[in-house]
């Protein structure tokens, strides 16, 4: 079975990985961990210094790399093989496209990512992926 785990370095996405590994859900499956990198900062109506944009871009990429390295470390602790990948663009759109590309059978994700308003029960990315994914989706809640 092909399992896609979109992560963003948030506690919710870390929790989703650890819970799934603990429960043996990922053992013996083809697991892909994926990070979507925001491709531009929007400041509608504001002039943003190109240097700032470049700096932000770099830090997004660095964060993505760190997130994937951390994921590899977690998987290694549980002796589970993992493929890592990333793409630039809108998070939900990139996740859905990647799921199509690898023909994911299941998407496992945390209930909330890094977005604001963390009191909302299901984040916008999780919510969009859930409603548009062709595969089944497991939403892992924190503090179970």
């Amino acid at each position: 079975m092909k399992i896609l785990m979109p992560i963003d370095g948030s506690n919710s996405s870390k929790n989703a990985m650890i819970r799934s590994l603990e429960r043996g859900l990922l053992t013996g499956n083809d697991v892909h961990v994926f990070v979507a990198i925001p491709d531009k900062i929007t400041g509608r109506g504001y002039h943003i210094n190109p240097d700032v944009i470049e700096h932000v871009d770099e830090s997004f990429e660095k964060h993505a790399k760190q997130t994937l390295e951390e994921a590899k470390g977690i998987f290694k602790r549980y002796n589970v093989e993992v493929t890592t990948d990333c793409a630039k663009g809108d998070a939900a759109k990139e996740i859905l496209e990647y799921a199509d590309k690898i023909k994911a059978d299941l998407i496992i994700m945390g209930n909330r990512g890094l977005g604001a308003f963390s009191k909302t029960l299901l984040g916008s990315v999780s919510s969009k992926v859930l409603s548009q994914a062709k595969s089944s989706v497991l939403i892992v809640k924190e503090g179970e």
Binding site: R19, L121, L122, L130, A133, K134, S135, S136, V137, L138, I139, V140, K141, G143, E144
Partner: peptide, 13 residues
């Protein structure tokens, strides 16, 4: 159920 449950929810399509 998904939005209000305290535990994880597996939605099967």
């Amino acid at each position: 159920v998904l939005n209000h449950s305290e535990c994880s929810v597996y939605i099967v399509k």
